[in-house]
Design a protein around this nucleic acid. Structure first.
Length: 234
DNA sequence: AAATACCTCAACCGCAGGCCG
DNA sequence: CCGGCCTGCGGTTGAGGTATT
């Protein structure tokens, strides 16, 4: 604990940025707590990490959000709630911090959302397709089911179905499927992505970001999935 | 021109989970 | 198994900029 206050706080200077960049160029990312010792920078490892991720990283896109980005964020937020890192993972070049700030300052107003409310609440859990009798089997999403209320565009998008099929196979278990975002919901409430959690996980936690981001069916899938859920719930 | 209110967003904080010895 | 360390996440804060009075 002693020495915690040896670290500087507040905005970074150009000199500090340069020191951090030089260090990362040589040593790469990670092991952030070594940076202050190695460079003499008066910043804690956490602060260095944040500075890199949110500002210095060459993958970070600067400037305002486009209409397309707004649209994607709104749709993803409908499905995921305040899981900013997941949302940001599907908005190329944007960090979770950027997405979160943009949502809180711009999109909430745009959508007329009153803050301090869970973003989306479902009154009661809809039909659960998952079969709990066999935890090893991924839940099935009725993409090819002609009785499904899902948009036909989804069920006929074969390349997208291929992606989803691949994702289904790669589905891996994840705690209780709720994560930290569950803090936003009361116990009796359900969030939509819990319903068919195996498939959601397989998509949202996949590393095949580009396959999904570049797949024109992905966002439509989210929309249709959300509509399908709400049609059951409301 | 000065004071004040409002807005934006970079950065901080606390917590949780993963990893490793 | 346990404890310490590191990383990542979401919520929150507050400095700096801009608009309004």
């Amino acid at each position: 604990m002693e020495g915690e206050n040896q670290y500087k706080k507040g905005l970074w200077t150009e000199e500090e940025d340069k020191v951090l960049l030089d260090y990362i160029r040589v040593h790469g990312k990670g092991q952030w707590n070594r940076i202050p010792k190695a460079t003499g920078l008066k910043r804690c490892g956490k602060s260095c990490r944040l500075r890199w991720l949110n500002y210095l990283s060459p993958t970070v896109k600067r400037g305002g959000f486009s209409e397309e980005e707004d649209d994607l964020i709104i749709r993803l937020h409908n499905l995921l709630g305040n899981r900013w890192s997941l949302i940001a993972g599907r908005v190329p070049g944007r960090t979770d911090n950027q997405v979160k700030n943009h949502w809180n300052t711009h999109l909430c107003k745009k959508l007329g959302i009153v803050k301090k409310q869970p973003t989306r609440k479902i009154a009661k859990i809809p039909q659960v397709i998952d079969d709990d009798d066999d935890e090893n089997q991924p839940a099935r999403f009725p993409i090819d089911n002609s009785n499904s209320k899902l948009s036909p565009n989804i069920s006929t998008n074969s390349s997208f179905n291929k992606s989803v099929g691949a994702m289904e196979k790669k589905a891996k278990p994840l705690d209780d499927g709720v994560g930290k975002a569950s803090n936003n919901y009361e116990d009796h409430e359900q969030v939509p992505w819990m319903v068919n959690k195996h498939l959601c996980e397989s998509i949202l936690f996949s590393n095949d970001d580009l396959m999904l981001i570049n797949n024109p069916g992905f966002v439509d899938f989210l929309d249709a999935y959300y509509l399908d859920l709400t049609s059951h719930c409301l």
